[in-house]
Design a protein around this nucleic acid. Structure first.
Length: 228
DNA sequence: CTTCCGCAGCTGACCCATGG
DNA sequence: CCATGGGTCAGCTGCGGAAG
């Protein structure tokens, strides 16, 4: 997944969920933030960020904030992209246990939820819920960075699906390089963490992959250890 | 003892920008 | 036109303290 005409900036502040103030070419710009989480740990004043110019002339903001440096590690915070990165990873047969799928579709509604990816592989079929992970502490990636009742609900519905014969997956895409370990963030969201554990006990496969992140791209990389 | 007022804390609505 | 989710603010509730 490539970004076009990426520019560099310095993060100033994020007054609300959708916008941030960023210094670009020594000029303060108001830009759109693609991330839904709060990202307190990484969006600190003065950090170096990368932005993609918008092609939509009707937009209020000229740029979207896509990645942030945390020390010397670049973290992609685009919450739209993990979905696509995983989808591309499956299509290119990069995911060991999802090789040679026979059918693949994004954003598929099932009962009351919409899941990120639906797949069929011969007789096998199921849903894949993708979670983008931007939080890291001591080399361990964690999710979520803020409580997510929606996420918990999704997982419980994946468990229901498994009971009805689907073979479902939870896929944590770590939006950074060189992180080789993942665990649910029990301190931040106990309910979610317990739902993940329950999912595993009910036969749902929990996958974690890190990504190759550069200033103008993100691509799926290596399978990592999941600590549940 | 009862009533009223003030304040703190909580809830809910709305706003922000975008893309589906 | 709706979903997204945190921040802000207005308005409401409930509690406590003080005064009649």
């Amino acid at each position: 997944m490539e970004y076009i005409r990426v520019v560099e900036g310095v993060f100033i502040k994020r007054p609300n969920r959708f916008i941030a103030h960023v210094l670009i070419d020594n000029k303060e710009e108001i830009v759109h933030v693609k991330n839904t989480g709060r990202c307190l740990e990484i969006l600190k004043p003065g950090v170096k960020v990368f932005l993609e110019p918008s092609t939509n002339p009707n937009r209020k903001t000229k740029y979207s904030l896509i990645s942030v440096y945390k020390k010397d590690m670049l973290i992609n915070i685009d919450s739209q992209v993990p979905n696509k990165v995983v989808y591309d990873g499956i299509v290119s047969n990069h995911i060991e246990c999802l090789k040679d799928v026979t059918f693949l579709k994004r954003e598929v509604t099932y009962n009351n939820s919409r899941f990120d990816i639906y797949y069929e592989k011969g007789k096998e079929k199921g849903f894949i819920e993708v979670k983008g992970v931007t939080l890291e502490e001591d080399g361990i990636a964690m999710f979520p960075d803020a409580p997510t009742t929606r996420g918990t609900k999704h997982i419980n519905e994946l468990i229901e699906g498994n009971k009805e014969g689907y073979i479902n997956y939870i896929f944590f895409l770590i939006q950074m390089d060189e992180i080789n370990r993942f665990k649910p963030n029990i301190e931040r969201d106990k309910a979610f963490s317990e739902a993940v554990k329950k999912a595993k006990e009910n036969g749902i496969t929990i996958l974690g992959y890190n990504s190759g992140v550069t200033r103008d791209s993100i691509i799926i990389n290596k399978k990592i250890y999941i600590d549940i």
